[in-house]
């Protein structure tokens, strides 16, 4: 299990786009992953307010959900997104990091089901939530 976690961590940290967005994997294991994305001006979607673009949150959600799938004890290898729905509850506060927690709550031989929540410093009020279905791949 520890080996699987290590493999998933290495995989996530090798993703060029995850690096480009400055993502930091803080927790992973047992079908659960937590990834932090620091605030950066290049991610701004609304220049008037400095609020980051929804697309950057989507990229973070997608990465974190994939990491959660790969860390599940029944997942033999990599994964790809089949579908991902994101609900945006409020704007992330400018200057604050966005932290996503994803849980792979069910997995079959072919499909993994994931839920995720994004928050900023105010952890009681989610910024966004996501639900997704992912493929279960034999290898990477």
């Amino acid at each position: 299990m520890a080996n699987k976690t290590k493999l998933a961590r290495q995989f996530i940290e090798a993703i060029p786009h995850a690096r480009a967005l400055g993502m930091e994997l803080t927790e992973i294991g047992e079908g659960r992953a937590v990834i932090r994305m620091p605030y950066d001006e290049k991610l701004i979607g609304d220049p008037d307010t400095g609020v980051i673009h929804g697309g950057a949150v989507s990229a973070l959600m997608d990465t974190c959900c994939g990491a959660a799938v790969m860390s599940h004890r029944s997942a033999p290898g990599g994964t790809a997104t089949i579908d991902l729905r994101i609900d945006y509850m409020r704007a992330a506060t400018p200057g604050q990091a966005v932290v996503v927690t994803a849980v792979c709550h069910h997995i079959t031989r072919n499909v993994a089901f994931v839920r995720a929540t994004a928050t900023d410093d105010d952890t009681d009020r989610p910024v966004a939530t996501a639900t997704g279905a992912f493929t279960v791949e034999k290898g990477f």
């Binding site: 060029p16 995850a18 690096r19 973070l60 790809a80 991902l84």
Partner: peptide, 24 residues
Amino acid sequence: SEDLIGNPFLPAIHGGVTAAFLEV
């Protein structure tokens, strides 16, 4: 650009990039 890659083994564009591209 290479920064858009999500799976370096295939390689394939990151699902998050695709989502962001569609949203933009």
